[in-house]
Amino acid sequence: MDILHNAGMFFIILGLPFFLSGTVGLLRFPDIFTRLHALTKADNVGLGLIIFGLALQSDSWLMVARLFLIWLLVLIASSASCHLVARCAMQKKIQPWSRP
């Protein structure tokens, strides 16, 4: 049990930098599309790692299923809203930033 607990803790700690870099990307990247890249990808990986870590530490299979259901829903929701925002930006003719 102790090994599982420590392994879970390892994955939770591994997930935190992804959230932080998602925020850093949101602040540093130059245009809306690149910011969407940072937000969608980094945050989903961070959440996935934290959920995986918590699943290792949980004591019932029902809890594991519940955690993965949450992850799946967040995954679907964030990729769909990411696409919607990007498409709307394209329709508004926002020019993507490109390297000079």
């Binding site: 959440l47 929701a77 964030s78 990411c82 709307c88 930006a89």
Partner: peptide
């Protein structure tokens, strides 16, 4: 743009879920 601002709500969504899961534990 307004969408840049709205993206923070998205950040709030994913980060908020992670925070609540950690607090639940």
């Amino acid at each position: 743009t307004a969408a840049d601002r709205m993206m923070v709500a998205q950040l709030f969504g994913t980060c908020g879920v992670a925070i609540l899961l950690l607090l639940a534990k």
